[in-house]
């Protein structure tokens, strides 16, 4: 029930079974001629939970922007769910992101002036074909302990912990195949952090999504199947 057909065609559906969910080949990206990322090959299989760590400045944000299709690499190919997103137009990449990728940031995930419910349902506006799975939304809200009374409040009136749970609900609303989380726990204290990770990974388990979790905090790595150091992945020749 949770993993029903979200692909645009049956053909993609079958390809997904064979192909890795994320695949990068010879991807290069730099700002103003200065190379920042140079990834020969990297792939993530379906259902994997990847812990990607690296110090600040190692190109984490850039990699996430590339994976989400906001930025386009100067060279190389990025395939998500068998679709080469570097071949898509900017508009199609936005559409792809809305339907197949859920993103969670460190903080400021919400529009402060909208209600919690409006913030969550925003994902439907961009990522659904008009179908709105109210049952799934109710289930997620319950799972994430987001009670009815909270939904009518302005997002800016929530605590950071509550805001992060709302962000999870929104990221999962369209049941995307890929979840990208960028330091989502760094604004939380340690108790809340463990609670949040349990909730996030529990929910993701239900939707069987693939997770790429980026952090500089290595103590979190035990939650994940695969650990990847970005510095080992992206080799930049310092002679440049």
């Amino acid at each position: 029930m949770l993993h029903h057909n979200k692909m645009q065609s049956e053909e993609n559906m079958t390809m997904q079974e064979i192909q890795p969910v994320i695949q990068l080949d010879k991807v290069r990206f730099g700002w103003e001629g200065k190379p920042l990322l140079d990834i020969q090959h990297w792939q993530v299989e379906k259902g994997q939970r990847v812990f990607l760590y690296g110090p600040s400045g190692s190109g984490k944000s850039t990699l996430l922007n590339l994976l989400s299709g906001i930025l386009k690499p100067q060279q190389g190919k990025i395939s998500l769910l068998g679709q080469d997103i570097t071949a898509l137009s900017a508009g199609k990449r936005d559409r792809f992101r809305a339907r197949h990728i859920g993103m969670i940031f460190q903080q400021f995930n919400l529009l402060p002036y909208l209600s919690v419910r409006e913030n969550i349902e925003l994902a439907w506006k961009f990522g659904s074909n008009g179908e709105r799975d109210q049952g799934f939304l109710a289930h997620m809200l319950e799972r994430l302990e987001l009670h009815e009374a909270l939904l009518a409040r302005r997002a800016s009136n929530l605590s950071v912990g509550q805001q992060q749970r709302v962000a999870v609900a929104r990221a999962l609303l369209n049941k995307p195949e890929i979840i990208i989380a960028d330091e989502p726990t760094s604004a939380l204290d340690s108790d809340l952090r463990d609670q949040f990770l349990h909730l996030l990974l529990g929910c993701v388990e239900e939707t069987k999504a693939t997770v790429v979790f980026v952090s500089h905090d290595k103590t979190l790595k035990d939650y994940f199947d695969i650990h990847q150091d970005l510095r080992a992945l992206s080799v930049i020749e310092e002679t440049a």
């Binding site: 989400s68 906001i70 900017a90 508009g91 936005d94 559409r95 992101r97 809305a98 339907r99 993103m103 940031f105 400021f108 995930n109 919400l110 529009l111 925003l122 994902a123 506006k125 961009f126 990522g127 929104r170």
Partner: peptide, 14 residues
């Protein structure tokens, strides 16, 4: 800028 980043992340086009 934050608002814009949020909207972009959800899939809003520029």
């Amino acid at each position: 800028e934050r608002e814009i980043a949020v909207l972009r992340a959800i899939g809003a086009h520029a």
